[in-house]
Amino acid sequence: MIELIFADRCTGCNACVRICPTNVLEPGKNAPPAIARQEDCQTCFLCELYCEADALYVAPNCDEMVAVDAGAIAASGLLGQFRRDSGWHEWAGQSPNLHWRMGELFARAKAG
């Protein structure tokens, strides 16, 4: 579930509020969005994909809220990785979309 919004990175664009499919976030008043309905979070990471400031962190645990170390996460290089690997925004053209090779996973696993 979503755990962190980094105030020092957030530009207040509210893209995450708009695109979160389950309406977890609420716009802040001169502040970053608030995580208002964490229990509705479906751990889909899509807010991270749409945040051009890499200001959000979704913890991988979908069953319970977990303690997270904001400092360690900011230092880890994990912020923005989904966007980078997906080749979105400024990463366009730098990480090709190889989704079309998915069938190969099944086929080669089957072939042994």
Partner: peptide, 16 residues
């Protein structure tokens, strides 16, 4: 190339 086929699948592993 898995991260370029399915970028999200590795996120939970890397984060843990």
């Amino acid at each position: 190339i898995l991260h370029q086929i399915q970028p999200a699948i590795l996120l939970p592993f890397q984060r843990q």
